[in-house]
Structure formats: C-alpha cells, structure tokens
Nucleic acid binder design. Structure first.
Length: 929
RNA sequence: GGGUGCUUAGCUCAGUUGGUAGAGCGUCGCCUUUACACGGCGAAUGUCGGGGGUUCGAGUCCCUCAGCACCCACCA
C-alpha cells in the first residue's frame, strides 16, 4: 500500500467492478427497500445540490443493501419540457435558426438529438459519485412506457371528471408563448408607478379618477368600480363614464372588493387582463375584452394607431396621449409585485385562453389526510406545516403547455370542435364514429403536458404502471423520498396526490427534506454569480485556467465575466486539488444537518481527505502488524479467541459497539452529520490516537499470546469499522476491505454485500471503559506537563506517585509499560510513607498526585504560572458548585441524583484544589529563591 | 397580510427528555516518535442576538424586541 491514499487509482476500477458484477440489482429478500431518484433534467449536468442529495440516497441504499434487504435505488432522468426546449432553442438561435422556421417534428428530432448527446453526462457523474443505482432499470420520462403511463393517467382523470378543459385567465408567458402553472410564476417587488387617470362622466360634467399600475390595459376596461359604502362615489353607481382613447362607455359599478383607502378609491376593471378584475367581471357579468396578441402586443381591439405595439411601448404611448389630452392627473412612484416566468424571466400576462386543468381539491384532501394521519411522514417534521398551508389554498392545476417538447395531450378534435380524450387515435376515432356515424377527420391537441405531470407519476410509472408488475408489488410504496424543500409543491405534493389516486397508497412513507447547498459565503450557487463548482472538479481536481474557462464561458450576460474571473482567481489561486469521491461524500454527510442553508467550504473537504488518508494509513499499520503466516490464528483471536483480552482490547471493542449504535441511530433519524461525526471521532481519536498507539508495544512484546490477541482485535475492529463506514465512503472502504477481510476471517466478493455491523457483537464493557479512562487521565496529565513545559517528546520523564490508593498502585503496576510508552516515562515510583517529594511539577488524577521532578527540566516560575492558571479555573467551578449546594431550594427540589452528583463534583474540585495549593506553596518557595 | 426558519469560539456548524457549553477548520507553542507532516503532542478562545418570565437550575421551555433568510398571498 502506498503511503498516501490516491483515490484516482481505485475509484473507477471499483465502480466498474461493482456495476458489471450486478451488485446494484436488488437481490431476493423478504424485506425490500426502495428509493426513487428525483430525476434530473436529462440535458443538464449534476450540480453540488444533486451530488449532495445523491450521496444521501446512496448512503441509505448501501446500508439497507448490507442489511440484506432487496434494495432498489431507481435511476432516471426527466425531459424537463420548458427548460430543455429553451436550451435547444438557444442553440438554434446561436446558429441563426429559429424554432418557428422548422416543423414541429424536425424540432423535436433536434431535441432528441441533443438529449442523446448530453444525456450521458448525468450517468457519468452518478457513476463517479459511486451511486449504486440499478442501471438496468434506468428510465426517462419520455420513454414509451412512461409515456403510456402519462396517457393512461390523463385519460382516467378525464373520465373521472378530474381533468377538464376550460377558458379562463391563465398565467401567460408572452416570450415563451405558453401558459404556466401558478408555481412557475415568481412574484418580486419592483419599482413602478401609479398613474391617476381621469375618466370623464358620459352624461354630465366632471370625471372620476382611477389609479392604475398598468395604464395600457385600459383599452380592455369593462367598468369602473367603487366601494358601495364610499360616500364620495356612492351616488355615481349606475352612471357611466367615457373610456378615454377608446370610443366606449363603461358602467360604474359597486363592489366590496374596492378599498376606498387605496389610490383614488376608483378601480378600473379589466376582466381579460387581471385576475381580480376577472372575478369582479364574473360577478357583474362584464364582457371580457382581450386587447393583446399572444406576444402581448396590442391587437385589433385597440385603436388602429396603437395596434401592434408591445405592451410596454403601448404603455408609454398611452400615458403620453393621456397627458396630451389633459386626462392624466398625476403619477406616483409605486412598488408593486411583478409576476415573472421562472424560466424566461418575462413579465407574466393574465391572458384568456383554452387550457387543460386538473381539478385538485379532491386529490388534495386525500393527500392532506395522508400526511395528517402519518402515512407520509416529513423529516424534519415541521415541513408538514408548509405542505398543509399550500394544500389548503391550492388552485386547479393548469397542465397544458404550448410547447413542442413533452407528452402530447391525448385529446382529439373534430371539425365541430368536439373533444375526444382517448388512449390513442384509433380510440378517439372510434368515439368520433359513434357520434357522427362515420369516420371524420380528427386533429390532435397541439399542446403538451406540464413536465411535473409525468414527474408526479414517477414512483409508480418507473415500476411498470399501469401494468400490475411484480416490481410494483415489491417496491411500492417506496420507503423514503430524499428531496429539497424547493420542490415540495412542484413534485412531492403531486406525487402524493397522484400516488394515492392511482395506486391507492402513498408513494413513499417518509420524505427526508434536506437543506440547499450554498457556497462558502452563503450565496446560492449559480452560473451568473460564477460560484458554481462541478462536483467532479472536486473529485478530480481542476487547474485555475480550466476553472476560469468553465465559469466564464457560455454566460448569458458576458459583462459578468471579468468580475467572476477576479473572484475565482482570488478564491482558488491554485485551482482545486483532487480530493476524491469519498472525501466529497463524507463532507456532504457532515453537512446534512437540519439547517435549510448549507454552506459548502472546500476546507472541509480537505479535512475529510485527510481523514481518508488517516484511515488508509491505519489500515497500512494494521496490515503490516498482522502480516505473516499465522493469519488464521489471528482471525481466531478476533472472533472470540482463547486468551483473556487486555483492557485496551475490551475498551476499543466497547467503543466500537457504541459507535455502531450511534451510526445506526443517526441513519434512522436521517442525521448523517451525526453518523459522520461518530465515525470520524471513533476512527481518528479512539482507534488511531489511542488503540494503535497502545497496540504498538504489545505487538513487539515477547508475549506471543498478547500480541496475537492484539492482532486479532486490530483486524476485527478495522474490518468492522470499514463496513460501518462503507455507506458514506464506499471506495476507500472497499479497497481496504479487500485486503483486510481475508486476514480478519471474513470472506465475500465485496464489502457492498457484506453484513452491516451488529452492535450487539460489541457490548458495552463498563469496567474496561473505566479502567481505560484512568489510564488516559494519567497519560494526558503527564503530556500536559510536558507540552506546557516544552519538554522534548523524546525525553523520558521520571514519575513519582503521591497518595496513591491501592487501586492506583495496582493499575500502575499492571499498565506500567503502557503508561511508560504513552506518556514517555523513564521510571515510575511511589513515594514512601513520609518521604519528602523533590521539587516537581504536579498534576492530579482523582486522589492521586502525579509528580514530575523538575531537576533542571522545568522552571519553577513557569510551573507556578501553570498551576495558578489551573487553580483559577477550579476556583470558578468550586464557587459554582458551592453556590448551588448552599442554595436550599436546589438541595430540596432537585432530583437526589443531581444533588449527589453535585456534591461529588464539589468534593473532587476541593481535593484537586487542595493538592494543587500545597504544590503551589512549595513551588513558590523555589521560585522566590 | 399569512407562514416557516435562523442568530452558540476568529470562520462553518452540532448541542437529542432543562442538570459541568462541544467539533471541524483556523490560530499559537513543541516535535523528522519506525501507519500517517493529508502527521503527533500540548495550549488559547464563548455575556449561547437583547430584555423579561417559568424553574432549585435555561443555549434548551414561554413572552417580547432586534437583525437576517426563505415560502405563500388577487390591493388596483
């Protein structure tokens, strides 16, 4: 084994072996475990958030697989309608072409070609991350099977009256020229204006003033509304005004929606271009006057001179004309919430169109009930509140999109406009024939479905639905969904609704909601911010020029490049070193706290890369120590051999058991940060820092049985630790395990298929832990003196024991060589009764006083300072403990064991202080000489 | 307007039913100790955002204020 762990050499080799050996395919077992991957966009690449999420899922999957369950992690990708279509259109535009220049079929072909070209990236990335997904079941939302599921779901929902087609206002993206669902619209506060416009009364002198943020829509006004209670305007209700710039009169109506306190108290009503106005228009039977084309230009309903103007040009023109006509009373600056499309960024227009909708209310009720009753459990639990809040106010879901890339809606129209929703064209034709008595020409709906419609079926469509497959029976409901809170509404809620509806059961029993990965400064990672890191660049490393090129090329806003380059040069002057997959994965695990924002800092990856190296070298040590012909004897020692085990062996086994328990609990609670910490702590600070050091002299000792027993323990503990660590760090654990397992008496093709560690095999050994605690206290106390006095580590120190109890003496006797080795002692001797101690540095362990004679090594002054610092601390603790025990209320009300514990603490502190005080007095005399 | 979080060491964060405030990174000493310098040993560092309350006892529970972040929502 090399001195330094080199992930690059082993990771890809091991993954290929796992994959080709079929280890990712679920085995047969009574119990099953299943996770569905949230399918990423097929044309995208995995970012840090994906890598984080995939690490979590892989860790869960690997642990369950080791527990012997039939484990499936289902992979796949999403066609991501709008996002993908936009990407391909951008490519076309760059080549001087436009989507509208080609046929739909030609365009869709281009998208498929793009998908084939880029589709392998995600799979490649997943493999590099070590994701143990079952590639043989990989799915894509536009696969024939999944498309059939989409059609089936649509047709059934339609038959059940849960899908309908209707004409109403939708969120219209005039740039993409498609409808969007409510969720795809993001509102943000922007600076705007409030224009106060005079609408003259039609039958008398005077006018009313309406306040509007969108003067251009006045051409579509159908009324002016006032609050019926408003004394200023009450008398005008029923009269009419003349709509400026248009040759129309509008009624003045009363509606309680109008807030007399806002603006002028008069509201222009434009039912075809505002959601509120639409509702008011419905109440008052007002006409819908659509003044826009799908591109949001003024249409033929506008006066001729304004036709064809873009909505923002139209606004300027109309304000200008109103000003010229003296109808603009004033303009105020005004902050308003502007709705924008989440993909295009275009200002969304409420627009009157025919669209398909899912009637959500009945589905939402069932979904809410499923969460309330605990059939679906959110982790952390409080996400259910977010879920409920959305579910309570849910509106019908607009599922049709005026795009070309996606699942074509299974609806056909005859020339009279009758609709035939059917599983295929033949079935539609049959329905048409039934109506008309003959075949008639049918035209399929041009629209496609919202991407999230097919994603919503993912937990069962991937398993073969609508067929009744064995996989469905085996894996549905799945066990856990691992996802970010950003798609609870888009995806989680819809899977629950559709799963309950079509499968009659929840799609997953638990939803583990993790935080979102941000950069080291807490900024969201994005291309425009230039702070994106490709997970593979952390694994393989990347030099600065390549990193700069990646971050500054293909920017939508080229002017950002300079700033990004500067920041990148500053942050990564040397580029990024190669850290390997396991270090990255362990970092992700350690980040998996319950916080919402998770800051990703490369310094942590470096720390865990070091941890990998630590584990690697510990293994190197163990293998070297156990190298030899008698490996069978060692194995026997490891699995309950004959010799009574040394206390250190009993201790490390007990600690391992505790660690297994902690890791098990952490996995059950989805606290991978706890799991990572427990593994780190045990591996580094117990196994390496203490046990390996303890083992060294034993291995050299002439007592063959003790050495042999130690070898067995080293192997057994390491082998178990590797299995325990494998879900988080699959590669390094496999690489080491392959070398360690045979000597440890374990066999198997792969650690992946080895049994998950059993804590009961390593029960708590309280005696051993206590005894080791004493040893460690003594060692630490002497090391502290050495460290604080700057005594060279190689210098062997004499140690005198004062006031040693029988137990102390027995322990010293028993562990003399151990103590000498760990603390660097030259000699150890107990003071005789009445023997005057020489000038010495002192430390206390319980009642025992440890003395290290100064004899030229230690300056009395510095020892004095050291002792005084310690006493000061103890005095503080003493004061607190005394105060507590002096408090009558505490002694009377606190539980007896707490009071007893406090008394014990007080006694310990007093003894220690007393001992130290005595030495201070002595040292002070020396110091003053 | 409604809702949800967050505020603990220089930085990033843990802190499980209230009972001695922790880790990693960084910092400062000493060390080429035969697994590891991607290392070893030792050290320093906190008004747990402010205020109030409950309690024998509060980082933890309640109230309140401040700051930050996010989500939902139809005030023109």
């Amino acid at each position: 084994m090399d001195k330094v762990y080199s992930p690059a050499e082993i990771e890809q080799r091991l993954y290929q072996r796992w994959e080709s050996a079929g280890y990712f395919v679920p085995r047969l077992s009574q119990h099953s475990f299943c996770i569905m991957i949230p399918p990423p966009n097929v044309t995208g690449t995995l970012h840090m958030g994906h890598a984080f999420q995939d690490t979590i899922m892989d860790a869960l999957t690997r642990r369950h697989r080791m527990q012997g369950e039939a484990t499936l992690w289902q992979p796949g990708t999403d066609h991501a309608g709008i996002a993908t279509q936009m990407v391909v259109e951008r490519v076309l535009n760059a080549a001087g072409q436009r989507r509208t220049d080609m046929t739909r079929e030609a365009f869709v072909e281009r998208v498929w070609a793009w998908k084939e070209q880029s589709g392998g990236t995600i799979a490649r990335q997943l493999r590099r991350l070590g994701a143990s997904v079952d590639w043989s079941r990989e799915r894509f939302t536009l696969d024939p099977g999944l498309s059939q599921a989409v059609t089936e779901a649509f047709v059934r929902l339609h038959e059940q009256g849960l899908i309908y087609r209707g004409e109403r206002l939708v969120n219209w993206d005039p740039v993409l020229r498609t409808a969007l669902s409510d969720l795809e619209v993001l509102s943000e506060e922007e600076d705007g204006h409030l224009w106060y416009v005079r609408y003259p009364l039609s039958d008398a002198e005077g006018h009313v003033v309406v306040a509007t943020t969108r003067p251009e829509t006045m051409l579509g006004d159908a009324a002016v509304a006032v609050n019926g209670e408003d004394p200023r305007y009450r008398h005008l209700v029923g009269r009419h005004v003349l709509l400026p710039l248009a040759e129309r009169t509008l009624p003045i109506i009363a509606d309680s929606y109008v807030d007399p306190g806002f603006g002028s108290g008069c509201l222009k009503i434009t039912p075809a271009h505002d959601f509120n106005d639409y509702a008011i228009g419905q109440r008052h039977a007002l006409p819908l006057i659509n003044i826009f084309t799908p591109e949001a230009r003024l249409n033929e309903r506008a006066p001729e001179r304004l036709r064809g103007l873009d909505r923002f040009e139209a606004r300027a023109r109309i304000v200008e004309e109103l000003t010229r006509a003296g109808l603009l009373e004033r303009v105020e600056p005004h902050k308003l919430m502007t709705p924008r499309g989440d993909r295009s960024g275009a200002v969304i227009e409420p627009y009157l169109t025919q669209q398909w909708y899912v009637r959500v209310a009945p589905l939402a009720d069932a979904a809410t009930a499923a969460v309330e009753s605990g059939r679906v459990r959110f982790v952390p639990a409080n996400w259910d509140k977010t879920f409920y809040q959305w579910m309570r106010n849910i509106q019908d879901w607009c599922i049709s999109r005026q795009l070309w890339w996606g699942h074509r809606i299974p609806a056909w129209y005859d020339q009279q406009g009758h609709i035939y929703v059917a599983r295929d064209e033949q079935a539609a034709q049959a329905a048409a024939r039934a109506r008309h008595g003959r075949d008639v020409p049918l035209q399929q709906d041009e629209d496609v479905l919202d991407t999230w419609f097919s994603s919503g079926l993912w937990p069962f469509s991937t398993l073969g639905w609508p067929a009744h497959t064995a996989d469905l029976a085996r894996f549905y409901p799945t066990d856990v969904l691992v996802t970010g809170f950003d798609i609870i509404f888009f995806w989680v809620a819809r899977m629950i609704m559709l799963g309950l509806h079509f499968m009659g059961d929840v799609p997953f029993r638990e939803v583990y909601v993790h935080g979102l990965i941000r950069d080291a400064e807490g900024q969201k990672m994005s291309k425009t911010k230039g702070n994106v890191i490709d997970p593979l660049d952390i694994i393989d490393g990347i030099d600065l020029p390549a990193l700069l090129a990646k971050r500054t090329s293909g920017l939508m806003q080229a002017h950002l490049a300079a700033g990004i380059e500067k920041a990148t040069r500053k942050q990564y002057p040397q580029g990024i070193p190669a850290y390997g997959t396991d270090a990255l994965r362990f970092t992700f695990a350690s980040l998996a706290t319950q916080s919402r924002d998770l800051r990703f800092d490369l310094a942590r990856v470096a720390g865990y890369r070091n941890f990998c190296n630590k584990l690697w070298n510990a293994a190197r040590f163990v293998l070297r120590a156990c190298d030899g012909p008698s490996s069978e004897a060692m194995a026997a020692g490891g699995t309950g051999g004959p010799a009574p085990r040394a206390v250190s062996e009993r201790w490390i086994r007990s600690r391992l058991g505790a660690t297994i328990g902690a890791v098990d609990a952490a996995f059950r609670d989805y606290r991978l940060d706890f799991a990572a910490n427990a593994l780190y702590e045990f591996t580094w600070h117990e196994f390496c820092d203490w046990y390996l050091e303890i083992a060294k002299p034993v291995l050299q000792s002439p007592q063959a049985a003790a050495a042999q027993s130690t070898r067995g323990t080293l192997l057994h503990v390491l082998e178990t630790l590797l299995r325990l660590t494998h879900p988080l760090m699959p590669f390094i654990t496999e690489e080491i395990w392959q070398r360690v397992a045979p000597s440890a008496g374990t066999s198997g093709e792969s650690i992946m298929l080895a049994a998950w560690p059993d804590a009961s095999e390593f029960p708590t050994d309280a005696d051993a832990e206590q005894e080791m605690h004493w040893i460690m206290q003594v060692v630490l106390a002497i090391r502290q003196i050495r460290g604080e006095m700057d005594i060279a580590p190689a210098k062997r120190l004499p140690l005198l024991l004062q006031q040693a109890s029988d137990r102390d003496l027995a322990l010293v006797q028993q562990h003399l060589s151990l103590l000498s080795q760990l603390a660097g002692l030259g000699s150890v001797r107990a003071l005789r009764l009445g023997e005057a101690p020489p000038p010495a540095a002192a430390a206390m362990v319980g009642e025992l006083t440890l003395l290290v004679p100064m004899s030229g090594l230690i300056e009395p002054q510095s020892e004095l300072r050291r002792l005084e610092r310690r006493v000061e601390k103890i005095e503080q603790e003493l004061a607190r403990a005394r105060g507590k025990l002096a408090n009558d209320h505490f002694v009377r009300n606190a539980p007896p064991e707490v009071v007893a514990q406090e008394r014990q603490r007080l006694a310990d502190f007093e003894r220690t202080r007393h001992g130290l005080a005595r030495h201070i007095a002595q040292v002070r005399v020396l110091a003053s000489v």
